[in-house]
């Protein structure tokens, strides 16, 4: 057995501050992804003129690996545009679009799950389309797909580790740094796994709470 945490302990503060960056990235990407996902699902509805464009965006971001999207955007595109974005900016743009693509499909399923009769009843009462969407369709759709949305957020937290390839110094990158300085792998990666796990346990705890708050059973 060759386990020695003592060599790694001095690096724990470094790793923990990586957690902050991971959280920041995940939170901003979740926000961006939610806004985009929402916009995509509404604009991409049947009969919308934007549908083909939205569908192409969704297909692209779901159909190609995130790692490649990120590398292509941050390192590939500057060859053409000449603009080299900040690593965080690249990461946020790619993550928002990527999770937006997934979330839009989840939300679309939620919107389609709403019983048409309720929408019809609201129309019969003379309620405007806007009020029907926001007060009848969206609250019920969100509630129906909340577990799937939480899934997407949990995936997002884990996938932020991918940005280590373009040099964002989040948790994963700092773990790699720790390993390369200490020549230890087992200990830093074990700690990092536990840190991701704790983050996601906290996230799913609040997800469950929200689910209960929104339920009317």
């Amino acid at each position: 057995m060759n386990i020695n945490f003592e060599r790694v302990i001095p690096f724990i503060p470094l790793m923990l501050s990586g957690v902050l960056m991971t959280l920041q990235l995940a939170a901003l990407a979740a926000l961006g992804g939610s806004i985009l996902g929402f916009a995509f699902s509404l604009l991409g509805r049947k009969g919308s003129v934007f549908r083909p464009v939205i569908k192409a965006i969704v297909d692209f971001f779901r159909g190609t690996p995130l790692l490649i999207q990120l590398t292509f955007f941050h390192l590939g595109l500057p060859q053409i545009t000449g603009w080299v974005p900040d690593v965080m900016v690249s990461a946020l743009i790619v993550f928002s679009l990527n999770s937006g693509a997934y979330l839009s499909e989840v939300l679309r399923a939620g919107i389609e799950s709403i019983d048409k009769g309720q929408i019809e009843a609201a129309h019969a009462l003379g309620v405007e389309n806007w009020d029907i969407t926001w007060n009848i369709v969206v609250p019920q759709a969100l509630r129906n797909v909340l577990p799937a949305i939480m899934n997407e957020f949990i995936t997002l937290v884990k996938e932020t580790s991918v940005v280590s390839v373009i040099g964002v110094t989040e948790l994963m990158r700092r773990t790699q740094m720790t390993s390369s300085v200490t020549y230890r792998y087992f200990e830093p990666y074990l700690i990092t796994m536990i840190l991701y796990l704790v983050l996601n346990m906290i996230l799913s705890f609040f997800g469950k709470k929200l689910e209960r708050a929104l339920s009317y059973d």
Binding site: A121, I136, Q140
Partner: peptide, 10 residues
């Protein structure tokens, strides 16, 4: 008034 009530479930 509809056959299937169509109440707002939430």
């Amino acid at each position: 008034v509809f056959q299937n009530f169509n109440l707002f479930a939430h």
